[in-house]
Design a binder for these strands. Structure first.
Lengths: 218, 218, 218, 218
DNA sequence: GATGAATGAGGCTTCATTCAT
DNA sequence: AATGAATGAAGCCTCATTCAT
């Protein structure tokens, strides 16, 4: 599982730790509320009640501040993800139910953290550091997703089940990520609710992984 | 099919048409080479050998210049897309081959125009005008994709074949679009070639649409 | 009386004269509608349906265009003024009535042409050419104002009646001019209607020129 | 009496207060030396030895900088005005002398601050904020002018002495303001010294307010 | 360490004027 | 002569980063 932030210079005193705390919280809020375009050092300073100078003392640059906020935020997601995917419930699910629940885990996570993820994904396109620091959390999610499904490895009708599950994860993650950034009618005028979209993704994954029997009840 | 650019004020004289041409070409180049961040009015002016004033005479604002470049570029893609999807070859393909070729059409288009599309997609997240002007071309592609596959409607084992094909398009487009923006190992450390990725997308679509028989030859 | 425009290069052909005509009319309209800030060469060109090049061919610079428009406009005012102040009616008026009518003449003229005069006065502060070209018309008005009042020279209880009348004109012109530019409550919060203001100006002039007997009926 | 500037964000440190000081001083100088047209942010920055960014940190916009300079300047005038009109001398003056001194107070103030007032008045025509922020100081002057004269209310032969005095103030202020902006021969070719002009204004006011006895000693 | 004022490069846009057609 | 496209200097403003206190 990804580790806590390593970017910021570690603070020694309590007061310092608190203001670092506020800085990260504020940075996240700014991203959520105003997106990357509204993410200015001055705005974070104002919200965090931490001086610009301190921010630079701690983070070195705007980019690093962003990355630290990102790590902080993703750390939270990681824990959520771990909690979701290590629950006891999984043991009792059928392959099909497992896929459904796994897809739902990914979908929910993206939907719930949409505000921040928008800013993050936008930035990751352009800034390799952001991309590099964001990747592990997604890998972690991918890993968890794969693990629960691969429990049913025998039901997977693919030569390379690991690969197949990986492909599923990519499909699902891409589809929801895209929807998050561009809305439901960017690629196609047909509108879907988030739930319906998830249901279809699930069906597609089942069909791909589990093969026959996944057709609609005709 | 989407229409040619309507954003720029039409020039009257030949010299003028040439410089408009240069402006659009330069704008596209700048986006390809330096992305949105490098897309400054001054830079386009320099590359196009067209004065800033002329750009504003023609496009009114930086945003409009971007959109005009976008329309110009997408118009080219639209034509490519139309050419690809209206070819005679389609008549002779099996459902499975049809899906494969359709996926490949989308995949190739995205790969070939990756440079520009990166800038465009990045911008579409934030600027609703860009999004609105970009959408039709993707809808056009979606339509073409759907049309060729729906020829084999009878082979589709879904209650709502139109919807199913739409979902496929979204999956494929999202997956390739994402890979374009973030590279092959962003979501998962497992590396894929573009071709392999396409092959798996195809399998997934076949499984989802065509049902049994789509398993790997075990 | 001031002469017609001498600034613009005289046109030879009819078509030319017409477009020069349109240019001047348009220039005036622009000043009236959008003030000096909206007075751009491009805007005049658009309204006049005369190319920018032609405007420059004719007027040499934006400043000269403005001055030509000014002369054209003021020429009209001059004629109005002449008409007003040479009417037969004056012969039958008492000194007091004469002052009242003269003040009204000035007041009406300023009010009626307020739209253009605002732009003109604003410009005259800053541009000596504009000031120099505008002056004669006001001098003309001053002259007419003085002339009708000086008919009653014997009633004027001042050592230097010419000077006294001149002072009156300045007072009246300044007061109305100022009101035109700044509105009724700029100098003092007490509001006046334009008519009331004129009435008081008249009283002041009468008091100053004609002396005792000008008090309010106590 | 109008209050000191409230527009600029208050500085916390000494260095800061000094540079704010320099900014305002420089802004005023620029207006005096080059008028509104020369009042550019860059020029103020240069003169004040204060960076553009600092100006914006403090004033938010060019307009606000102008208004802050205006408030600063007018505050000085207000104090001068208060000093002049609350002096003990007034108690000993006759009505006629009082009017003369009051007119002189207005006249001197306008003459002394001509440089700045030109820029200010020019701007007030076009910018309602400037107008609104300038008005109170003139109202203050009007109030002082009225107060000293209304001490002699019994000598004023007008039904409404307050109104009459107000009218006088407007006449005087307009006349001097106009002369300031346009010079002595704009309305009439007859040249006057500033003093002579003031003398006549005084006579006119006396005649209007005090009635008979104001004739020139024939 | 912490603060927040100061810096100034760099971005967008306007518009008077010129000049090729 | 007439046209209107082209030019580019100049203006306003933002914001990442530095640095005096």
């Amino acid at each position: 599982m990804p580790q806590p932030p390593a970017v910021a210079r570690p603070p020694r005193q309590k007061r310092s730790r608190e203001s670092l705390e506020r800085a990260l919280t504020a940075a996240i809020e700014v991203i959520v509320d105003h997106g990357w375009d509204g993410f200015t050092v001055a705005e974070v300073s104002r919200r965090a009640q931490v001086s610009v100078g301190s921010l630079y003392a701690r983070f070195g640059s705007k980019e690093d501040l962003f990355i630290a906020a990102q790590e902080r935020y993703l750390h939270g997601i990681d824990e959520e993800c771990s909690a979701y995917f290590t629950d006891a419930k999984w043991a009792q699910l059928s392959p099909r139910e497992t896929v459904a629940a796994a897809v739902q885990g990914v979908s929910d996570s993206i939907e719930r953290h949409g505000g921040f993820l928008r800013g993050l994904m936008l930035r990751a396109v352009v800034d390799p550091e952001v991309s590099a620091h964001g990747s592990p959390s997604i890998h972690h999610l991918a890993e968890a997703f794969s693990a629960v499904i691969l429990v049913h490895r025998d039901s997977i009708r693919r030569v390379d089940p690991e690969l197949a599950v990986d492909v599923c994860f990519r499909m699902v993650f891409s589809a929801f990520g895209r929807r998050l950034l561009y809305g439901p009618v960017f690629e196609s005028p047909r509108e879907f609710s988030w739930e319906r979209f998830r249901a279809e993704q699930t069906r597609a994954c089942c069909a791909y992984l589990l093969g026959s029997g996944s057709e609609d009840p005709a």
